[in-house]
Design a protein around this nucleic acid. Sequence first.
DNA 1: GCGTCGATGTATCGGGCCGATACATCTTGA
DNA 2: TCAAGATGTATCGGCCCGATACATCGACGC
Lengths: 185, 185
Amino acid sequence: MATDQRRVLELAVLGSLHETPLHGYELRKRLNALLGMFRAFSYGSLYPCLKTLLERGLIVEEHPQAVTGRSKIVYKLTAEGKERLQELLTQAGPAAWEDESFGVHFAFFRHTEAEVRLRILEGRRSRLEERLENVRAALARTRERLDSYTLELQRHGLESVEREVRWLNELIATERRASNEASDE
Amino acid sequence: MATDQRRVLELAVLGSLHETPLHGYELRKRLNALLGMFRAFSYGSLYPCLKTLLERGLIVEEHPQAVTGRSKIVYKLTAEGKERLQELLTQAGPAAWEDESFGVHFAFFRHTEAEVRLRILEGRRSRLEERLENVRAALARTRERLDSYTLELQRHGLESVEREVRWLNELIATERRASNEASDE
DNA sequence: GCGTCGATGTATCGGGCCGATACATCTTGA
DNA sequence: TCAAGATGTATCGGCCCGATACATCGACGC
């Protein structure tokens, strides 16, 4: 579905507003700072998203008229919004393994249950391994036809993804350790 | 401009057809195999692109009626198409430094002049360094507010990009060495 | 005081990408 | 002989995002 992308955006916005009410401009700054090199959201996505969240009653507008007459529109999470956020954090499906979504889910891990965290990390890893498999197979099929530049590109691409898999392995091990320690009290 | 993306697609298609005539389905397979983990093109982009290239006379259709009546449409580069390809390979501007374009340009480096190769590699590097700068600055500003998961995400993101910069440094050094060896004959 | 520059702030539009889909043929193997 | 999956051509609609417009604010120099 194309609604997968909508859900990520929704999660990102609701998750950000969970901490503290924000207006559009700062929401974008915070979100992009939070995600760093992984993702960036544009106004063209954020403002329409805020509008639909408003219509659905998940957030409310506030016009704090400061002493200076400057008009800022601050958005605040409603009770329904918090519920929806919990739902999004819990029901992380296969869509959360993808490049565009994974970073957002990860960025809100502190609000996510340990079980779901593990599911997302393992799903992401299997998604990457699947992709590695495909690319390696395609490479084996066409290696003789490729020049040294293309091979170098392929090599670097594969290495980058392998590196992310190793990173995920470490994270998964850490999660498992923490979960075991918690269980033998 | 939004035409930047068009140019990359054009380059990818013309570059692929330069080797050998292809039909849509195999063009896509070859291209995606060529780019590996870096990019993938969809039919929704490729077929419209082929149509405009056809209209502009840069490629021509061929209907090789095989013994079996199976209809395949093979596209072949024209003289104008080859000219245009050379133009695209040579006039690589700042757009070529971006994520979506760099891999495609790199994949056709064997058809690119040494001088242009160096320009693209250095441009890509400075683009990444610029981005690192921004993210590091934002991180320094907000570090205290971030939880350990987000910090780990940031750390991994930065390391990935730093790794790509080191890769570019090696490639640039190799290019320079080759270019120097060529000059003292 | 005054000009100006960059950051802050809200908002929209259109070009273009791509997932999903439809449909047809060929090959493979059970 | 039948089904499944690869090969093959093609389009459509939803949605993303760069570009843009417009306005205010703080700081700085002069």
